[in-house]
Write a protein that binds this DNA or RNA. Structure first.
Length: 559
RNA sequence: GGCCCUGUAGCCUAGUCUGGAUAAGGCGAUAGCCUUCUAAACUAUAUGUUAAGAGAGCUAUAGAUCACGAGUUCGAAUCUCGUCAGGGCCGCCA
């Protein structure tokens, strides 16, 4: 909480004896910066809220930080003395660790991306990883120790279909372009063949069986394809800034978990029906779930039970977050309930961060039909557009520099688009919006940062001592107030696992800065004002950078 | 059929958890700004002038029955119930 808000809370607590003070922000900033609605006291005081507000306004005295306390109807409004607030704030917020939370001494594991390794990454993976990465950075910034993980679903029907597709249609060929795309081609070709000749299905089953029996030829083929896929992924990960502390592989653990389930069966937690082991969950208003198939093989769920335990055993984590799309809401409700029934202590520390699917204008993406937006293509397209824009503005940059900037800007545009909505929001992917750099976009925020850099470069480093009283226009004050709120925003976003709150904040700050920039001369002002404003924008620059960093977006000095 | 999520200007969203003042932002539309730090030319070398261009900038205006109906409350976009519409999931896929 910033100092001004803290002071208001303390004053009100002392006066009203309330334990919790819920302050609001007035709709109109002319009314004040914080408001205390007095309705909540009217029962206790047996007075109407307007009178209470009047009395409080008389009793409470302004302080150094609180310039004015006024009553407007039933509201008690507080106007902050921004110049006083700015005194320590500007210095504080120029530091790299401004907004950082205290060390929470807790370890959180964040699982995200978790691709099926029979195909290249698509648009959905971009949203997933943008959320996963930004959530991880956010929690880390807030003081948690973070372990990022992904489980590669590298076996099963899909992977086998890609393998058979390779054998049937691409035998002895090698990838020409990006190797994961080549594997996608094998998969899609096989899917197409299966549609035309459903009888081929038995060949898939046979090959899967051979794989499970560790038939050498089959395993070699599998290894070959997986190598290609990971080669391709590695490139995309690097470009998007995705990294993991630990990667799991379904092929290592897919058969495990059965023991846990069988033990549960023995204890009567699960039931056997028609040869399959089933968790009866309907009394919890969750659909029942098969845990071991009647052919005695396991399922994704079986493995997930094991993996949940493995994560806790291996890393001694305090919390486990799964970033997975909303289509699997039920899967995780089932998983968490099952783990609870099995009496694992960590069952209460699991959280499914569900996010809405990304649709295409033509409908839902289906990779088996090839109707997806490929991740690399999307990046390429956006980066190319950024390149054009850069060349329009700068004629004398080296090709290398243009490419570097274009990468930074294009990827910022994509990531920001993926994070700026609340995670539950589904959206229809509009290519024009993805490559737009105006309005509520990543490049807009980057531009604010770059602009500040360019001003500072021209003006030089400001002096340390600041006369904050000159920062007295509406625009100055708006920026100061926003700067003071950054730590609360981080806290709130981390608490609720909502990275989009950071995106919103960065937008607000960029906007406030741009308004300020247009209204308030900096370099042309008198020395005191110039120095104070340079210090102010230095603070804005740092906070923008901190915010963008959390979102996995680079803060450029020029663009 | 059951369960979960969503419904806010022409369009996209924030706000909903934790009820509070005139419902906020972006796109698009319309009308402007022409610089101070982007940028060209000129000479009078100026915080200059000029035609233009550019715009990851800014300002203003218009645009909302917060899906609909009821309830709770001093007060509802927000909580509860119902209806409608869209999306997702529903025992041996992930």
């Amino acid at each position: 909480m910033n100092k001004a808000k803290e002071e208001i809370t303390n004053i009100l607590k002392k006066e009203t004896k309330l334990k919790e003070i819920n302050l609001e922000v007035p709709k109109d900033s002319a009314l004040g910066d914080y408001a205390f609605p007095c309705f909540q006291l009217s029962k206790q005081y047996k007075q109407n809220p307007i009178e209470i507000a009047m009395n409080l306004a008389k009793t409470l005295k302004p302080t150094k930080l609180i310039k004015e306390i006024t009553e407007v109807g039933p509201y008690l409004n507080f106007t902050i003395n921004k110049q006083a607030l700015a005194e320590s704030l500007i210095k504080d917020s120029q530091k790299q660790d401004y907004g950082k939370g205290k060390d929470k001494k807790q370890k959180i594991m964040v699982e995200f991306l978790s691709p099926n390794t029979n195909k290249a990454l698509h648009l959905g993976h971009i949203r997933n990883s943008a959320i996963g990465e930004s959530l991880s950075s956010l929690l880390k910034f807030n003081g948690y120790k973070i372990i990022k993980t992904s489980i590669n679903n590298d076996r099963g029907t899909g992977v086998t279909e890609a393998m058979l597709g390779y054998q049937k249609f691409f035998k002895n060929k090698f990838p020409k372009g990006k190797p994961d795309k080549f594997v996608s081609d094998c998969y899609v070709a096989m899917k197409k063949a299966l549609k035309e000749q459903p009888a081929l299905d038995s060949e898939v089953k046979q090959m899967l069986l051979k794989w499970e029996q560790k038939d050498k030829e089959t395993i070699d083929l599998w290894k070959k394809l997986m190598k290609w896929v990971y080669q391709g992924y590695k490139e995309t990960y690097k470009r998007l800034g995705i990294s993991f502390d630990k990667e799991y592989y379904e092929s290592d653990i897919y058969a495990k978990g059965k023991e846990i389930v069988l033990e549960g069966l023995k204890k009567g937690i699960f039931e056997k029906q028609e040869g399959a082991v089933i968790a009866k969950l309907e009394k919890y208003r969750i659909p029942d779930k098969v845990l071991i198939k009647s052919d005695n093989t396991s399922l994704y769920m079986t493995q997930d039970i094991y993996l949940a335990k493995l994560k806790h055993d291996e890393f001694k984590i305090d919390k486990s977050i799964y970033v997975v799309g909303s289509e699997q809401d039920n899967h995780f409700r089932q998983l968490f309930k099952i783990l609870e029934l099995l009496k694992f202590r960590f069952a209460k520390d699991l959280f499914h961060l569900s996010y809405g699917l990304v649709h295409l204008p033509s409908g839902r993406m289906k990779s088996r039909e090839g109707t997806v937006v490929d991740a690399d293509d999307l990046i390429e397209e956006t980066v190319n557009l950024a390149k054009k824009e850069i060349k329009k503005r700068h004629k004398d940059l080296s090709e290398k520099e243009v490419n570097k900037r274009a990468d930074m800007i294009g990827i910022a545009a994509i990531k920001f688009l993926m994070i700026k909505f609340d995670n539950t929001t589904e959206f229809i992917f509009d290519p024009a919006e993805a490559i737009s750099f105006e309005g509520e976009t990543g490049p807009y925020c980057q531009y604010a940062h770059a602009r500040i850099s360019s001003i500072l470069k021209k003006a030089g480093k400001p002096k340390n001592s600041i006369k904050t009283e000159v920062l007295n226009t509406d625009e100055d004050e708006k920026v100061i107030l926003l700067l003071s709120k950054f730590p609360e925003v981080v806290e709130q976003a981390a608490k609720s696992y909502k990275p989009h709150l950071i995106a919103r904040y960065v937008l607000d700050l960029s906007q406030a800065f741009n308004e300020f920039y247009h209204a308030c001369p900096i370099i042309q002002s008198d020395d005191n004002t110039k120095n104070a404003r340079l210090n102010l924008i230095l603070a804005v620059q740092q906070v923008l950078k901190n915010g963008l960093n959390i979102l996995g977006i680079k803060a450029p000095d020029a663009m």
